[in-house]
Design a protein around this nucleic acid. Sequence first.
DNA 1: ATGGTAGACCTTCTA
Length: 261
Amino acid sequence: MRIATWNVNSINARLETVLSWFEEAQPDVACLQEIKCVDEKFPTEAFERLGYNVAVHGQKTYNGVALLSKTPLEDVTRGLGGDETDDHARYIEGVISGPTPVRVAGIYLPNGNPVGTDKFTYKLGWMSRLNAHARGLLALEEPLVIAGDYNVIPEPADVHDPAAWTGDALFQPETRAAFRALKWLGLTDAYMAADGSPGGYTFWDYQAGAWPRDLGIRIDHLLLSPKAADRLAGVVIHRGVRGRDKPSDHVPVVAELDLSF
DNA sequence: ATGGTAGACCTTCTA
């Protein structure tokens, strides 16, 4: 099973680009972030024509996540618990039906910049709530994938110039510690387990020639429960997508799970 | 040099 995560930076501005990638890459499951539209504006029919079942948790202008699957989605939930005052659309979860069901959570973790503001506090609070929720999911002892734009640079090897990012919310010690705490729960970073070579960037800023100069960061991750990690067959970062017309600033990351045993 | 680009949307916010 190929499971993809991709921050598309507006699904409607990016529809042709996204659909053509889906046709060639044929992911079985996809988590999309920053769809930047309400549920009714999501191009559901276009994905249904490609054979996908669609679940959306949208929001006007900002954020918004979607979960797509070639097999039916079950037990879909929207929103991350732990704070009733949080109205950002950043979390969607469902079970991918099949002989070996896989629970998939798609996340758009807050950016958190600038550091020292309530935005950074919100980011750390969101990570704490994700930790609490993941703890409960892991107790189910299922194949589980938590995939999305984490807005976390885990290690210096995941950024072209660590010194240039020391003041950024994505690379703060507290941010990195919260990401490590997720892994300590028993989650495996799929890219590190399958490949792990430095320079596996997933995001290049639109500004200052970041893409042609390969000034990237690795912030789109798939974290796997033990029963999902046991089946991990590989991870591919589709970096070439960044060089196409009208690209998102993120590229798709695809993990392959072997569900044949 | 505090620059630069992109998207939603209505003048500025988010990234």
